[in-house]
Design a protein around this nucleic acid. Structure first.
Lengths: 185, 185
DNA sequence: ATAGAAATGAACAAAGTGTTCGCTATCAAA
DNA sequence: TTTGATAGCGAACACTTTGTTCATTTCTAT
């Protein structure tokens, strides 16, 4: 791909992320993004159809990366390394977040975090579904209820963690999470 | 209060709710709300400062009602005195939703449901805190983690339920939920 | 019946949207 | 190094939306 394209695309993403940390999505104008990214109006619209399209692209980039990275981790380590090693997909995800992977934390703590959280959960749901399908054949609770419960409460936990300024280590959080989830498997 | 005020306020809420079922919050214009509610432009701005203000007022009305009703239920036993009396606050909340209380379902299933879900969870958090504060102090899991886990996964469950077209009865849902939550208390 | 409150519609400036057009700068490949 | 193609630029565009003002009409509470 043309270097120029990459450069403007990156500038737009960066400006957008930056603006999101200061004001809500709906109050950000395309004009502001253009000004902050210092690109021509025409250039913006050559890359993205609308502001919504930009948001979609950003979500895709962010969560596509983090989820596929987590999926890779399960191929090499398995979903849980029961007992012995402290490594779980959840811990892996949390560590990625802790490292502020691609400024994802900023987006999950911004005023419009719902947008990203919802997207995060959707991505996560797919991951959990493929990885957990066999493991949660649980008594009288429907499987998709359980899948939803796991991905839903993981996302809610992340939000709680971030809102509380990430005082806990990923490992501690992982312990808490497993304490509330593992009894169900 | 002046009847005219109540009437326009209701007309605006109704039009807004109606529009939300068809398009996303950010794509709804004040002009559309005005047209749908059939009120003057000046009248709208006499009632609400902005579209955001209208959203806030709507959330307040909806969740203020449902939560305080649930809180009351815990004090007044015999509200539903037949055989299928709700045994938990959760069941009570679900039954309220099932009765499509104030069109709340429409708002929780609309394109912009994140906005309402987040507000729902915030209201719920207060309720859960008062209800469960004494019951969940028995572990190496922090109490506010647990409170967040409960309200968070309840809200996520409601979303799952609504997205799946509410096939389960409130009672069945309540059983599932208690199955994943009660082991922790 | 009337004073005060509420609703109305027209008009307004300001800001934002998404598009077109002609021009320039940059790139990749021959 | 030349060259054709691609990307970016900025001005201008017609358009919509916003939030406000103001004079006027209608309703309501007492």
């Amino acid at each position: 791909m043309d270097r120029r394209q990459q450069k403007t695309r990156a500038a737009i993403f960066s400006a957008f992320t930056d603006l999101l940390s200061r004001k809500s999505y709906s109050h950000i104008t395309v004009q502001e993004i253009i000004d902050a990214a210092d690109v021509g109006r025409t250039t913006f619209y050559a890359h993205f159809e609308t502001k919504d399209d930009l948001l979609r692209a950003l979500c895709e980039k962010l969560f596509g990366h983090i989820i596929s990275s987590a999926a890779d981790c399960t191929h090499t380590h398995g979903l849980y390394s029961d007992g012995a090693a402290p490594e779980s997909v959840f811990c892996h995800l949390l560590q990625h977040l802790q490292e502020n992977d691609r400024n994802i934390i900023a987006l999950l703590s911004c005023e419009s975090s719902e947008l990203f959280l919802r997207c995060f959960k959707d991505s996560l749901n797919g991951l959990i579904q493929t990885q957990f399908a066999d493991r949660c054949r649980n008594r009288d609770i429907p499987q998709d209820f359980l899948i939803n419960h796991i991905s839903g409460s993981f996302v809610e936990m992340v939000l709680w963690w971030i809102r509380g300024h990430r005082k806990q280590s990923p490992e501690a959080l992982d312990r808490y999470f497993r304490a509330v989830i593992e009894p169900l498997l």
